[in-house]
Design a protein around this nucleic acid. Structure first.
Length: 422
RNA sequence: GUGGGUGUAGCUCAGCUGGUUAGAGCGCCGGAUUGUGGAUCCGGAGGUCGCGGGUUCGAAACCCGUCAUCCACCCCA
């Protein structure tokens, strides 16, 4: 009999770490709400072609990282590798374009990518994401970027940096690509093997190669900026001045190229220190063509996603360890009659709104008090056979060791009174 | 998919060039304190040394394989 273990790259979140996650989720929710985003809950799996069409058939995600399987009727389904595709699908399917107010959504949930696990990278990981659909104005970009920045800074993550770039329109990239390729061809022999391949498949990706040799070459390469149309340029300028206005610090990075095909114009990424190699905490951009590619009405859109595991990693390094709230009342019922009365006292306290706990394995008062201490309870309610006879229990303040008799017939009012007094 | 590190008690880790009953700290249980927790002291329990094979008189240690895990490449949030 071999032990059944969890799947590689798929983690359990144990009660010790769950408060940290709640903190992150609450911050994200709070800020999303302030910015006027509403929660959407979309399925965890979809028809495979949705992802192939939106993310891009030649991306790594679609080529080799998706969890794809056959449904019983043979249709190909896949576990979502990201949240945008499903959100857009829902937007189209429910004809949300017809609603005369901006459609601004946020979501939380697990995503699935078959990658080799490492620091900050799992096969089942969690994202918080935001999609702002319908507004083709730079202010919409600013709004989304500001929201991302606000959430992450509110959580006080170390070494946050916002990098931003302008990918222009598809036509802009089409005019730029030949310039880049012909330049790269001249230096082909000095490029890494990977980049030589990328040069054919997706030349823009060569720009964010980390190999120093490649970087040196691309440093002098023709820049996308110089091929951008006037409209693309002025759009980006207005995004930047909007960020200045609302005081979001950023730095330009002309190498910033996203790994998903649907982005255009504004792209951005927030990185942090102390994250190891996977240092992107949140990233996103504008994707004006996606709704239409998926069969919906032409709809401009911007969004981002945040990697929650990565945020959680950073948060552990900083200051979270201050919320281990223990229970307020430990009920120590022991002896034949005390145990019985203890059970009813527990229930009575809970109905009255207290958090009340006990360890039913403990038979002696000593053992009970030890557990009360471990559980960091504020009070212990001692009920032994003697107390049952007297019809009054002993309420012990675990910190001050002060004890009061409280009558068993009026437990919760008397505890309320003592609490109010202290 | 490729490379490297690490697998010894519940946890964190020692264990020298192979040598006899495998250790520490923390945690756990019990006692000192038969109805009063945390501290102290005393005592105790707990290990297929990841798994399989090989070398050897002898393997936790050496060799081969395998699995797990971590980190990096790649990719991305």
């Amino acid at each position: 009999m071999s032990l059944i273990k969890g799947i590689k790259g798929v983690k359990d979140l144990l009660p010790e770490e769950t408060p940290r996650w709640r903190l992150i989720e609450e911050a994200a929710r709070r800020w999303a709400h302030r910015y006027g985003f509403h929660e959407i809950r979309i399925p965890i799996f979809e028809v495979t072609t949705l992802f192939a069409r939106s993310i891009g058939a030649s991306t790594d995600i679609v080529e080799k990282e998706m969890y794809t399987f056959q449904d019983r009727d043979g249709t190909s389904l896949t576990l979502r590798p990201e949240g945008t595709a499903g959100t857009v699908r829902a937007y189209i399917e429910h004809n949300r374009a017809a609603i005369p107010v901006p459609q601004k959504y946020f979501y939380f949930g697990p995503m699935f990518r078959h990658e080799r696990p490492q620091a900050g990278r799992l096969r089942q990981f969690h994202q918080f994401g935001v999609e702002s659909l319908g507004m083709a104005d730079p202010q919409a970009d600013v709004e989304v970027i500001a929201l991302l920045w606000r959430i992450l800074s509110d959580l006080d993550l170390p070494g946050l940096t916002l990098e931003i770039n302008n990918l222009g329109y598809t036509v802009d990239r089409d005019t730029y690509r030949p310039h880049l390729v012909s330049y790269l061809k001249q230096h082909e022999s000095r490029l890494c093997a990977n980049c030589r391949h990328r040069m054919e498949a997706n030349p823009l990706r060569v720009l964010d190669c980390k190999v120093p040799e490649c970087r040196a070459i691309t440093e002098a390469a023709p820049r996308l900026t110089d091929s951008l149309s006037e409209t693309a340029r002025s759009y980006f300028t207005r995004v930047l001045s909007g960020l200045d206005l609302v005081k979001i610090p950023y730095s330009l990075n002309h190498r910033l190229v996203r790994g998903l095909d649907y982005y255009n114009l504004t792209t951005f990424e927030v990185t942090a220190t102390n994250l190891g190699a996977q240092n992107a905490v949140g990233a996103g951009g504008r994707y004006d063509g996606l709704v239409e590619t998926l069969g919906g009405p032409s709809t401009p859109a911007v969004g981002f996603a945040v990697g929650l595991e990565r945020v959680a990693m950073l948060l552990s390094a900083s200051s979270v360890e201050k919320v281990p709230q223990g229970a307020t009342v430990y009920v120590a019922g022991f002896g034949d009659r005390g145990a019985v009365v203890g059970l009813t006292a527990l229930e009575e306290l809970r109905l009255a709104g207290f958090q009340a706990v006990s360890d039913f394995r403990s038979v002696t008062l000593k053992a009970h008090l030890r557990q009360a201490d471990r559980l960091q309870c504020r009070f212990s309610l001692i009920i032994g056979d003697d107390e049952v006879v007297k019809e009054s229990a002993i309420l012990r303040d675990m910190k001050t060791k002060v004890q009061h008799d409280v009558s068993l017939s009026a437990l919760s009012p008397e505890i309320h009174l003592l609490l109010a007094g202290s």
